[in-house]
Amino acid sequence: MSSVLFLNLAWQISTLALVALGLAIVFGKLRIMNMAHGEFVMIGAYAPVITSSMGLPGWLQVPVCLLTVALVAFALERTIIRHLYGRMFDSLLATWGIAILLREAVELIFGRGYQSVSPPISGTISVLGADYPAYRIAVIIGISIGFAALYWWNARSKVATRIKAMVGNPDLAEAVGINTARLSAGAFVFGCCTAGLAGLILAPTIRIEPMMGLDYLIRSFFALVVGGLGSLEGLGIGAGIIAGTQSVLGAVASQTYGYLAVLTLSILFLWLKPDGIRSSSR
């Protein structure tokens, strides 16, 4: 395996894992099939456009991104999403509507056209004997550290357990003193914020326009079902299989075959191993 292919894989897997992380929480934990997930990635990617149009310094991109996404997510959770817990297919339909709503809203504000964002670090550096964009290297390292921290926190924190308890049996969870309304709102907003952050991080490397969200939605769903809902390792493995298949087949055969292989693989997993690769055989 050439070192560029290796770095490409690392980039694809880490960014897909970050994009899918929020969906893992919202779909995996809250059982909301969030079809508007990609739109939160899109809003995050517009954060640099917001700061530059308001003349704000670049370092404000992160707080602006998180604040914008959190506000939008919170408003949607309070008005729409909270009625949909336990109604999975209804959540799919309603969030489909939300996705259109968010796209149209962004189009009204920023217009239909493409936006361009410069990376904070430009140029290429030599890694493992290959010239690779410096920004991408930084992102791969950053996401890896972030996931390690999350893994560490997840193993210690009680929040994940509480969410699980809440979804499993909301009445009981309420009875043992879990504030389910606050917990689910928090989980939804957190999930959307990670998607927004992913959008912000990807922004200098992709196209930015109101319709971009759909690109990220389907791959995230497939990464989740392949990896299995409910664990960070599963998310990593799912992202690895989906991004890896596309990358490797894209490199040795063609992107079309890579895409078809990803879809076929997803079908096989959904059929034969619906709980994902991490589940015990049953």
Binding site: S2, L5, N8, I206, D215, Q246, G250, Q255
Partner: peptide, 19 residues
Amino acid sequence: EEYVPFTVSEFDSSLQRIK
């Protein structure tokens, strides 16, 4: 010579091949 599906938005492997 290569063709990419509309649904693919990552061009890394294409770029590697071009290189």
